[in-house]
């Protein structure tokens, strides 16, 4: 007597194409989960960074003091990121242009804004890194699983063709083997879809707060330029 079929034996005794599909899906799953965890760390850190920097920025601290703190951090090999990076590049450009007497006020504002825009797009790029990969995994892994299933069912029918009497016992193992591929595909795709949607939303949140900050900061700079 056979002692039944378990998922493990199914996987181990599956035909080569199905096994290849399963291995591909497993790799995709591991990679996508690496991305999921890594993005989670990055995005939660960025969200926290937004809050803490806004708190510091609006605490009434002198802006050049804030800038010096950031420089200090950079000297200690701590990378400065997120909103603070936007502030630093805008402020640096503003100060540099302001020291040049020939530059007029509008040019100063324009330079600072351009520097902030560049920093903003760099930050956004950092946040959105790997998200397209997750999107690809989310949509493709289902098809890969389906491919494995189709191959498996095809094999099962080829096997059936040589059978005089068809019973459930003949079809069942092959169908089960085939279905494992679909199950695996879904297992990979579902977290990827959920996480992709969630992370896209939080990236949108963070970037919109960056934009808001950029506008606020440029209005402060504008005030300073025209008050002289």
């Amino acid at each position: 007597m056979n002692d039944g079929i378990t998922p493990t034996t199914l996987i181990l005794e599956a035909s080569l194409p199905v096994q290849l599909v399963l291995i591909t899906l497993l790799l995709l799953s591991i990679i996508s989960w690496v991305m999921i965890f890594q993005r989670w760390l990055v995005l939660s850190a960025a969200a926290k960074g937004v809050l803490s920097f806004e708190h510091r920025f609006w605490s009434g601290m002198d802006l050049s003091q804030l800038y010096k703190e950031g420089s200090q951090m950079q000297k200690e090999d701590i990378p400065v990121v997120g909103m603070e990076n936007i502030f630093r590049s805008g402020f640096k450009e503003f100060m540099r242009l302001r020291q040049q007497a020939s530059v007029d006020k509008e040019a100063i504002m324009e330079g600072a804004q351009r520097a902030m825009r560049v920093a903003y797009s760099r930050e956004e790029e950092k946040l959105e890194k790997h998200l397209p990969f997750l999107a690809t995994v989310a949509s493709v892994s289902v098809y890969i699983g389906l491919f494995g299933t189709v191959i498996g069912i095809m094999n099962s029918f080829i096997g059936l063709a040589s059978q005089a009497q068809v019973t459930l016992q003949v079809i069942a193992p092959d169908i089960a083997e085939a279905l494992i591929a679909t199950a695996m595909g879904l297992f990979v795709a579902i977290p990827a879809v959920v996480v992709y949607n969630r992370y896209t939303a939080s990236v949108d949140n963070i970037t919109s707060s960056y934009i808001t900050f950029t506008d606020e900061f440029s209005s402060i700079l504008h005030r300073q330029v025209h008050s002289d």
Partner: peptide, 26 residues
């Protein structure tokens, strides 16, 4: 400083993520 920790995580999150993902699958 809390920010510094966050910043470290942002740039060095990969090893941690790999470990987490592999652990999850195991």
């Amino acid at each position: 400083m809390k920010d510094s920790i966050n910043n470290v995580i942002i740039y060095n999150g990969y090893p941690l993520s790999v470990v987490a993902a592999v652990t999850f699958h195991s």
